[in-house]
Design a protein around this nucleic acid. Structure first.
Lengths: 195, 195
DNA sequence: CGCGACGTTGATTTGCCTCAACGATTGTGG
DNA sequence: CCACAATCGTTGAGGCAAATCAACGTCGCG
């Protein structure tokens, strides 16, 4: 089952699974191909899956009352993408999750994950540890968003995730950083002229 | 041990502990009294504890380069307060955690929690489930922060946590909502005149 | 080729900040 | 138990970062 190496290696970075446990985990996986611009989560529908990106890129965004898009997260290989609030509370989603490229994902159903976490201690630990980490990092982002200027945030992101920044459209990055596409464009041209 | 009822009831809302497991959990608790204005977390020191609020109120905030305070979280009874990034990564804190009132907390040491989570499956599940929930709700806040005006955010908070809003100083609430104390004051007076 | 998606640029507007001065309330030491 | 100082909240004037609106390049793809 070379197929499932990426997710199993990811899990192995946090906990040890027995061969049998690993089989149980991979047995609940559904592999799905997703075309660019296709949605895997849409408002109104309960988000049923934790989606692990095997190949490709996604963004999760919210559409507000004024029709503006706010990108909550950008996920590439080895990341999970969902409307996490919808997934955790099993209530209708308020976000879109959209493929930015032709992609392949592993889908884990909510009920399957919950059942397996109750059965396999190590899997529970895996999700505890990874969620704690994700939460900790998201806190940093909240701080960054409210205590830094748009320009600082942009260059911070560039430095931290250069590959992602150059892989996704600029308007996606702008809406992730909480600024308008026009203003991001202006920030960039400003810096180019300086150097 | 009537003492530990609040935390045990909190845990019981998510998982079942055996009597023996519950004893192990309470055995690692250190009860601490904290005076108003006292810090339980400070920049430069690694945040060693998950602090469960038994009585009182806290805020966690970041002091930026311009000397401005940004409140990350406000915690009252039944909440955990830490510099979560520092706690999870066990690196020096960048935030303050300050008592807003005379308070009592249960302190759980990082190493003790990690050891017990490896030993007790149900405890691992407890922290997995609660962290997932906390993370999901924090996502909502990120969205709220970037897609709504200061006024909307304030009245949203008022409706959601009326007791907390009236319990903490206004400048704390302002820095939590990401606005200046002066502007929050103006928002309030505006609304009062309308009604 | 022509259309749609994406990026740029400039003019104008605005939500919120900053600074400064002033009440109101609390608490604390003499 | 009062006086005086902090602490906290209010109010107004002026300024700025970033949004909005609008028009115009440009590239890739069906």
């Amino acid at each position: 089952m070379n197929n499932y190496n990426s997710i199993l290696e990811n899990i192995a970075r946090f906990v040890m699974l027995t061969e049998e446990e690993a089989k149980k985990v991979t047995s609940i996986i559904r592999t799905t191909k997703v075309k660019k611009r296709q949605f895997i989560v849409q408002p109104g529908f309960v988000c049923q899956h934790r989606n692990y990106v095997v190949k490709g890129a996604f963004r999760v965004y919210h559409l507000d009352d004024d029709g503006k898009e706010h990108t909550v997260s950008i996920g590439v290989e080895d990341w999970f993408v969902t409307d996490f609030y919808s997934y955790v509370t099993q209530t209708p989603a308020t976000h879109y999750a959209e493929a930015l490229e032709d992609s392949v994902i592993f889908q884990f159903k909510y009920e399957d994950i919950e059942a397996l976490c109750k059965e396999i201690h190590a899997l529970s630990e895996y999700f505890r540890l990874t969620t704690e980490k994700a939460f900790a990092f998201s806190r940093r982002r909240v701080i960054s968003n409210i205590s830094k200027t748009a320009e600082e945030r942009y260059f911070e992101y560039l430095e931290k995730y250069p590959n992602i920044a150059n892989r996704v459209p600029q308007y996606v990055l702008a809406s992730y950083l909480g600024i308008s596409a026009e203003f991001l464009s202006k920030i960039r041209s400003r810096r180019i002229k300086k150097s």
